[in-house]
């Protein structure tokens, strides 16, 4: 399997404050990889830098073998990177259906869009019931599902999920992660997942990296990390 995403010595700063200090990791095609860490570790910064919203001060991001540092964010969507931002980033004044449509903004293949729309509605039947509703009125779980459905409409090769569990009730989190596994299995979409909820992330991911104050401190297979005493104590509360 080849590395669809390879991050090499990536450094990002906000003004003079460093947020990421030379982090390196990779995601192979078809994999689900989790980036786990506490608040302020640099998880969202990593996501925003990959998707082109932030410019790094050093390092490389190789996507399909090509360095994408400096490429504008909207071009990366066309290239196949789709991000579900932290807090969902739904357009609250638009309806559910309009939000889904805007996910396919970069596409012109009417047939493909129609097919994918049917697929995401079958993946998220709740959204189909609420198609005409203004998205601002949805519940937290529904918003997360809408954000994921919208990102899938871009037909991504690499799906970036930033804290999908944030602010959701445990039973909804289970649902969301079930769908994440399903997307990876059915569509073979490569997924990079950022989470504070280590337990859920480790059940969905094949491999994981632990990030703390801008540095990667551990990495390994999810099943190994889940058994690791230190990880169990600090991240799983066991």
């Amino acid at each position: 399997m080849s590395g669809i995403l390879e991050v090499k010595n990536l450094s990002v700063s906000y003004g003079i404050v460093p947020a990421l200090k030379e982090i390196s990791f990779h995601v192979d095609e078809g994999e689900t990889v989790a980036l786990i860490g506490p608040n302020g570790a640099g998880k969202t910064t990593t996501m925003h830098t990959i998707s082109g919203l932030l410019k790094p001060v050093g390092g490389e991001i190789l996507y399909c073998g090509k360095n994408i540092v400096g490429t504008e964010a909207h071009r990366l969507v066309t290239d196949g990177i789709s991000q579900v931002p932290e807090g969902r980033g739904i357009f609250p004044t638009l309806t559910v259906a309009e939000n889904i449509d805007i996910g396919a903004f970069i596409r012109n293949d009417k047939e493909g869009i129609k097919k994918d729309k049917e697929w995401v509605y079958s993946l998220f039947p709740r959204l189909k019931e609420r198609m005409k509703q203004i998205s601002g009125t949805l519940s937290g779980g529904e918003l997360q599902m809408l954000a994921m459905a919208r990102a899938l409409m871009a037909n991504p090769k690499l799906l970036l999920l930033d804290e999908p569990s944030m602010g959701l009730a445990p039973v909804i989190v289970e649902d969301v992660f079930h769908i994440i596994r399903q997307i990876n299995k059915e569509q073979h979409t490569t997924i990079l997942l950022v989470e504070q909820n280590a337990q859920m992330a480790l059940t969905a991911a094949k491999r994981a990296y632990i990030i703390e104050v801008g540095q990667i401190v551990r990495e390994g297979l999810a099943k190994d990390l889940m058994r690791d005493d230190e990880i169990r104590k600090s991240y799983l509360g066991l």
């Binding site: 998707s51 082109g52 919203l53 504008e72 964010a73 909207h74 071009r75 969507v77 066309t78 789709s82 991000q83 931002p85 980033g89 357009f91 609250p92 004044t93 638009l94 309009e98 449509d101 805007i102 996910g103 903004f105 970069i106 919208r150 871009a154």
Partner: peptide
């Protein structure tokens, strides 16, 4: 649509490929 998306959030509009 792109204009209305930008008026909600420029960054989120970028993530839609706009």
């Amino acid at each position: 649509v792109a204009m209305r998306a930008c008026s909600v959030s420029v960054n989120n509009a970028k993530l839609m490929g706009i």
